[in-house]
Computed example of a mutant assay.
Amino acid sequence: MGLRWTIRLRLTLLCGALFAAAGAALLAVTYLLATRALPWAGIEPPRPPDLGLPGPPPGVPDVPDPASRADDLRQFLLASVLGLVLMTVVAVGLGWLLAGRALRPLRAMAATARDISARSLHRRLAVRGPADEVKDLADTVDGLLDRLEASFEAQKAFVAHASHELRTPLTFERSLLEVTLADEDAAAATLRTACLRVLDSNRRQERLIAALLTLARGQRGLDHREDLDLAVIAATVLDRPAAPDHPAAPGRAAGEGPVVEAELDPAPTVGDARLVERLVANLADNAVRYNVPDGRVVIRTGVHGGRPTLCVGNTGPVVAPEDAAALVRPFTRLERGRTGDGGGGDGLGLGLSIVAAIAGAHGADLDVCARPGGGLDVRVAFPPPPDPPGPPPLP
């Protein structure tokens, strides 16, 4: 097993190298001062006091022996080098200890992260200490774990709900067919009625699967982007004729359900036109479906605060303000005030979930607010379109 080039080892070697380089520079300067005079200093050492002792004749300088001076300098240099080597070793040891102490929280974070699995996403690093870079990293990882845990819980809840939604009609269809086939004397009309009920249930499953695919596509992100206008898409959705199995679809005449009013100002943006069309259709369909008889639905488009915006409001059942945001979760339904409950018009509980996924894929802000008198106001603010490129430079 080779030597691991760890951060602790690199910090230790860096600390030792810096100390050795600084010590060598200090030693070189000290040796230069000891061997040579510095003419730019302009300072002479003080003359020794005259104590009346016999000495050299006047005018003859007291010059030390060159051989003795050179030997003193060699001993000084050798002692300084040995001291530098010793202190470098000490600095490396201290650097190893300090680096280990500084990196101890990182080792604890790595050990905790290794122990966290899909079954223990509730655990957190919870690093304590001063608000330094390590604490910031630990808090960032804890925030990531919070989002990951929420995503796992949402995924498990979504799978459980989807399984239930798909299993219930299958169980109903099997029971209906078994009961019908168990009657050997069943008439053709009875068999035809059973087949029609199975087909009706099958259509509901098809809508559920299509909604799940749209939700998955919206959560995956955008494959391509194109220029579009929210006003044009909203007008296309409102002009579409109501489907036979959607008695609560937009476009119903007055007296047959809520009246739909449109105020469509230009709102250019960039995105996937098919997904944005599904977003508008889901909001309009939900606004009509979850309404009161002879209620109103208002659809507005325009640019607000520099952002292309779609607003859909309706006069529906009273929703608690704290429950409005929960409606974007999959399979969350309003059980009261539903229009068009008959036939296949009951909701799947995925309408606003698909809206939230498509809005997220486009980088749009989704705001769901409950009206005091009943109903919802849904606002989707898309990012502004990019600025057009400027004219090419002149040759």
Rank of each mutant, 00 (worst) to 15 (best):
L53V: 06
L53P: 04
P54Y: 04
P57T: 09
P58T: 12
P61C: 00
D62R: 08
V63F: 12
V63M: 07
R69H: 06
A70E: 10
D71G: 12
D71E: 11
D71Y: 07
D72H: 12
L73S: 02
R74T: 06
L77I: 13
L77W: 08
A79W: 11
S80P: 05
L82R: 09
G83F: 15
L84T: 06
M87C: 13
M87E: 12
M87I: 08
V89S: 00
V90A: 02
V90S: 02
A91W: 15
V92R: 08
G93L: 00
G93I: 02
G93A: 01
G93H: 05
G93N: 02
L94E: 13
G95E: 10
W96I: 04
L97G: 11
L97A: 10
L98P: 07
L98Q: 09
L98T: 12
G100A: 09
P105H: 12
L106W: 15
A108T: 15
A110Y: 04
S117D: 15
R119P: 04
R119D: 11
S120L: 01
S120H: 02
S120K: 03
L121K: 01
R123L: 02
A126C: 05
V127S: 05
G129P: 01
D132G: 00
V134F: 14
D136I: 15
A138N: 13
D139G: 15
